[in-house]
Structure formats: C-alpha cells, structure tokens
Computed example of a mutant assay.
Amino acid sequence: MESRWGRIAGKVALVTGAARGQGRSHAVRLAEEGADVIVVDSLTDVPGAAYPMATAADLEQTVKAVEALDRRVVARQVDVRDLDGLRAAVDEAVAELGRLDVVCANAGICIPGAWDEITPAVWQATLDTNLTGVWHTIAVTAPHLVRAGGGSIVCTGSTAGVKGVPFMVPYVAAKHGLVGVAKAMANELGPHGIRVNVVHPSGVETTMTEGLGRMMELISENPALGAAAFTNALPVERLQPSEITDAVLFLASDESRHVTGTELKVDAGNTNL
C-alpha cells in the first residue's frame, strides 16, 4: 500500500540503525512513499552506554512494518564499524533488490560525560560508530549509486555537529567530522549525480535520549551551560522521530534534486540561540 504521493516510488533505500527510533521511522516512511528498503543494525550493546542497543526483536518489528506496506525489505545484522561485513551485507541486499538509490547513514551512539570522565574506550567507540561508520556506509554504497546513475545520501547529524555542546565531547567531535565528510563527498560524488546532505536534529524522543541521565546530572550542576546548549527557540523540548523523517524524505526525493552539500537543521531553533 503506497502513499498517494509515492514520492520515491520504484527506488531502493538503505537505512542504518534501522531497528528502532529515527532509523525505523525513516525506513517505514520511505516504504510508505514507494521504496523497497534495506535495513541494518548492529543489535549489539556498547560498553559504557547507559541504554541498551536495539535487539533482533526490534529489527523484526521494523521489517514487519515495512512488509505491512507491501514493500520488499532485506534485513541484516551488521555493525557499521565493520567495513567488510557492511560491504558484504549491502552487496547481497542490493543484488536481491536490484539497485540502490537512497542511503540514510543514521546509525549512532551517545555516551555523555564530563571531559575528565571520558575514557579512551568511549572516545573510540563513539568516533568509530558515528564518524567512521558513516564513512564506511558511504564508501560501500557509493558504487551502487554510481551504477544507478545517481542518488541521495542523507547523514544524521546533530546540533552537536553545529555547536560545542558540553558534556559529550566524543559525540561533538564525531558529528562535526561527519559534516566535513558529507561536504567533501558531495563534491566528489556530484559528477555522478549523487547528492550528499546532513540533517541536524535537536533532541529527539528515542531510547538514546532516554539514556542520558549523566548529562542531566551535569546540566543540573552547570545550569548556565545547560541552558545555552539545550534550549530550543520554539516551545518544544524534544522532537519526534517522524519530524526528522520529514526532512530525510525531502532530501531522498527528487524534490531536492539540486540540493547537495547542505546542512538542514530540524532543531526547533536550538542552534539559532
């Protein structure tokens, strides 16, 4: 059952971190708009994270939601930090579905802490997932987009990719780096008709944001820093995943055919303050 609009009808989309949260929202909405979908997730907990990662049951729920829309879906358990595993999973899925047109590099983790609490393991895991994982995703999908004659890559950024959000230095570093990767790849892949953009959400109502207790403690101890970093201009505390998906869909569709190398802020004015 397709949307009456079918804004990406006939296309195939890949979504990383698709088992729940923003990733599931993106996968289901893209299917609603006519795409077949490849969904991947690590399904593996990360040491140091104060919240559980998605499970096989979560990924299966995403699959069922896509199938209920009468769209084809291929699901794989793979960590974006694993370049060879990700390449194999993507190649197999694209071979099954026939092509690839849209890529949502969405997988990410967040482990907050004051600067003197951040361990080398937390630093490395965050950069490996949120930055190197995005690079891996682009690297293994770009050849398929080239063969398709073009496409769209949408990277999940953050307000932490725009400003120096306190108490999450590894996350800030990764999201700032992600912007640079996206802008450079927009230039390199542009001649192939491939667009690369970043969506910057402010806080979104997901399991990840439910696991930020340590950050809340630090904010309470440093209220001025907290107010500067986490206040939205609009009267909303957290956004819903579907509200970020609206922006992703725009960037995935031909409506944004001439949009590349941009940072689209869906942040309730957070970075405008």
Results as ranks from 00 to 15, higher is better:
residue 31 A to H: 06
residue 33 E to L: 01
residue 33 E to T: 01
residue 34 G to N: 02
residue 34 G to Y: 00
residue 35 A to T: 12
residue 38 I to W: 08
residue 40 V to C: 11
residue 41 D to P: 11
residue 41 D to S: 07
residue 41 D to L: 02
residue 44 T to M: 00
residue 46 V to R: 10
residue 47 P to G: 07
residue 48 G to M: 01
residue 48 G to I: 00
residue 48 G to P: 05
residue 49 A to R: 15
residue 49 A to K: 15
residue 49 A to P: 13
residue 49 A to M: 14
residue 50 A to H: 09
residue 51 Y to E: 14
residue 53 M to R: 10
residue 54 A to S: 15
residue 54 A to M: 03
residue 54 A to P: 14
residue 54 A to G: 11
residue 56 A to F: 00
residue 58 D to W: 04
residue 60 E to W: 02
residue 64 K to R: 14
residue 65 A to G: 12
residue 65 A to P: 09
residue 67 E to Q: 15
residue 71 R to T: 02
residue 73 V to F: 08
residue 75 A to C: 09
residue 76 R to M: 00
residue 76 R to C: 03
residue 79 D to T: 06
residue 79 D to M: 02
residue 81 R to V: 04
residue 81 R to P: 08
residue 83 L to H: 15
residue 84 D to A: 13
residue 86 L to F: 03
residue 87 R to P: 07
residue 90 V to R: 07
residue 90 V to H: 07
residue 91 D to N: 10
residue 91 D to W: 02
residue 92 E to T: 00
residue 92 E to M: 00
residue 93 A to E: 15
residue 95 A to I: 00
residue 96 E to L: 00
residue 96 E to T: 02
residue 97 L to Y: 13
residue 97 L to K: 12
residue 98 G to E: 13
residue 99 R to M: 01
residue 100 L to R: 10
residue 103 V to N: 06
residue 103 V to W: 09
residue 103 V to D: 12
residue 104 C to M: 14
residue 104 C to A: 13
residue 105 A to E: 13
residue 105 A to G: 09
residue 108 G to P: 14
residue 109 I to F: 06
residue 109 I to G: 04
residue 109 I to C: 06
residue 111 I to C: 01
residue 112 P to C: 07
residue 112 P to R: 13
residue 116 D to S: 04
residue 118 I to N: 08
residue 118 I to T: 15
residue 119 T to V: 08
residue 121 A to D: 15
residue 122 V to K: 05
residue 123 W to F: 14
residue 124 Q to L: 03
residue 125 A to G: 06
residue 126 T to D: 10
residue 129 T to H: 03
residue 130 N to F: 07
residue 132 T to C: 03
residue 133 G to V: 10
residue 136 H to W: 06
residue 137 T to Q: 11
residue 137 T to R: 08
residue 138 I to D: 14
residue 140 V to Y: 11
residue 142 A to S: 15
residue 143 P to H: 09
residue 144 H to K: 02
residue 146 V to S: 04
residue 147 R to H: 03
residue 149 G to P: 12
residue 154 V to G: 12
residue 154 V to N: 05
residue 154 V to L: 04
residue 155 C to M: 13
residue 159 T to E: 13
residue 159 T to C: 06
residue 160 A to C: 07
